[in-house]
Write a protein that binds this DNA or RNA. Structure first.
Lengths: 150, 150
DNA sequence: TTTTTATATTTGTATATACAAGTGTTAGTT
DNA sequence: AACTAACACTTGTATATACAAATATAAAAA
């Protein structure tokens, strides 16, 4: 369905506006679908994202700055996100002994386990959309998004 | 900048994951930029969106259902969004006399005025991104997003 | 006509987000 | 050493979002 139909636009939209709305709308569709997957696990999308970042550290602890700069939504409140993960025992949090301003956050085995359980569902989610394009189109979409943004 | 670099990924990402992250990240960039534009006017992105929908009605009142189905984020709370706009006198709200379950929402002159003031800034915002692609690439990006989503 | 079902909207509540201000720690300067 | 600036993180507060439950009205069925 075209974006004009999705939002039932009553006026003609120029291509610049269509693309902006299309990206915003597509993001909503992706996010809603992803939240459905996460729902039974009682973690939010951004919490999942933090866990993914921590797993990517491969055993090394991550401080708050590092987590922040790797998140998709830069304005998220990292402290409170980590708080939530701590409550669920998906991470540990300790003051860094070398620099007491920093906090060392690490993923626990329980956190790694939930990611392992989610992995196939996340891949399935990503492919639900991407299977509609062939390899060439996927590369092109990725390329165009990067060119558009920068 | 490539999406892997934006989120400083430590692991290789397959194309499906890259596109998902790329759309989410690009939406954040667009939204952050747009919020900067709206900031001096003290309205949020979704409030702006509701005003745009009401202007599109060209004088006809819109009920809550109609607004909801034209919004980008379908889960937004339309009642409370309209409440905020009412406080600022950008809209009027009345019970529909034909069907007392419905609410008729209309944009005021003050609401139309703020949209008129915002119009050139919004166009500038959209073109800030889209000028990086040529016409053919813009059409292609729009097409690929729609194909990807459906 | 009474009861049931469907529709349209609002409200409650818990959580999330945005962003400014505050706290504690370290590094640099005088 | 005392002062100042920079850094890393947390807290406060207002607003927004998600989603279930509640309310009010209208239409349909018994």
């Amino acid at each position: 369905m075209k974006i004009e139909d999705e939002i039932k636009s009553t006026v003609a939209l120029d291509i610049s506006k269509k693309i902006t709305l299309n990206i915003l709308y597509t993001q909503n569709v992706i996010t809603d679908n992803f939240n459905e997957i996460l729902k039974p696990y009682e973690i939010s999308g951004e919490q999942y994202n933090v866990l993914r970042i921590l797993r990517g550290q491969k055993g090394n602890p991550a401080n708050m700055c590092l987590i922040q700069e790797r998140m998709l939504a830069r304005t998220s409140n990292t402290t409170r996100l980590v708080d939530k993960l701590l409550l669920k025992k998906f991470v540990t949090r300790n003051v860094c002994p070398e620099n007491r301003r920093k906090i060392e956050v690490q993923i626990t085995q329980k956190g790694l386990d939930i990611l392992t359980e989610l992995d196939p569902k996340v891949i399935e989610h990503e492919q639900l959309f991407s299977k509609k394009l062939n390899t060439e189109e996927l590369e092109q979409l990725n390329h165009l998004l990067e060119k558009y943004r920068n």
